[in-house]
């Protein structure tokens, strides 16, 4: 399967089954979808519908049971674990719902970590860290540990870390799930800024439909591991 130049993600009959004893859990059960470059896509669905599983497959953290998944022209199912690590370093940036940061590291160290694996020059790292932290409004907290910061600040730091290797796609699994609506909105604004200003492809998982409708230009609905439907959306204004 070849992607044309405008596709960021394309899945074909994507399946991810988990075996639990005798029973098989069909977390993702034949999903075919396409996400274009520059899209702001929201994955919606009830709890257990397979949203996180799909995100992990796109992130190259999980392997499909069958089917194919092509991200930025790479067939992920065919990559070896070392190549997948390479892919995670440079192509995608990830933000999770919680426990995003390494608790024993300061903010700077957390944001610097992906660059260690990507073997970025030591001289360049500090500039990039400061730049990333400035873009999420955390310039003053460089030497703090995660436990000394609020949930919103932690999530912003995680965002900075996801961006520091300049990925093409930002993957965020319920980035506002643990935050109050005001802080949640702040995070979403930041993400929208990235999407609009540098044209970064964004995929977020959420089960808050209003939030999705306000920011995303595409909505994808999952249920029991299957694609229920998708719709274009005209995002609302800033608050």
């Amino acid at each position: 399967m070849v992607s044309n130049g405008t596709e960021a993600v394309r899945t074909e009959s994507l399946v991810r089954h988990y075996k639990l004893g005798q029973s098989i859990i069909r977390a993702i059960d034949g999903v075919s979808l396409t996400i274009k470059k520059g899209d702001f896509t929201a994955l919606l669905g009830a709890s257990g519908s397979g949203k996180s599983t799909l995100m992990n497959l796109i992130a190259g953290l999980d392997h499909p049971t069958s089917g194919s998944i092509v991200v930025e022209g790479k067939e992920l199912a065919k990559l070896e674990s070392g190549q997948l690590a390479q892919y995670r370093r440079h192509t995608v940036g990830m933000v999770f719902q919680s426990f995003n940061l390494v608790p024993t590291m300061t903010l700077v160290e957390n944001v610097e970590l992906p660059m260690r694996f990507a073997e970025v020059d030591r001289g360049e790292r500090r500039t990039r860290v400061e730049e990333a932290l400035r873009s999420v409004g955390l310039s003053g907290r460089l030497e703090h540990r995660p436990s000394e910061m609020s949930g919103g600040e932690q999530q912003r730091a995680a965002l900075a870390r996801a961006l520091v290797n300049r990925p093409k796609i930002l993957l965020a699994d319920e980035p506002t799930g643990n935050l109050d609506s005001k802080t949640g909105t702040e995070i979403m604004e930041l993400i929208r800024g990235l999407n609009r200003e540098i044209g970064m492809t964004v995929i977020i998982v959420t089960h808050e439909r209003p939030l999705a409708e306000r920011y995303a230009n595409r909505l994808i609905f999952l249920g029991d591991g299957k694609l229920l439907g998708e719709s274009a959306n005209t995002p609302g204004g800033t608050q």
């Binding site: 674990s81 070392g82 690590a85 995670r88 990830m94 024993t104 694996f117 870390r161």
Partner: peptide
């Protein structure tokens, strides 16, 4: 455990 998971998610290879 979680830290190792995070490191892998942000680009650490098994070898790292």
């Amino acid at each position: 455990r979680r830290e190792i998971g995070i490191m892998k998610a942000i680009g650490a290879s098994d070898g790292d």
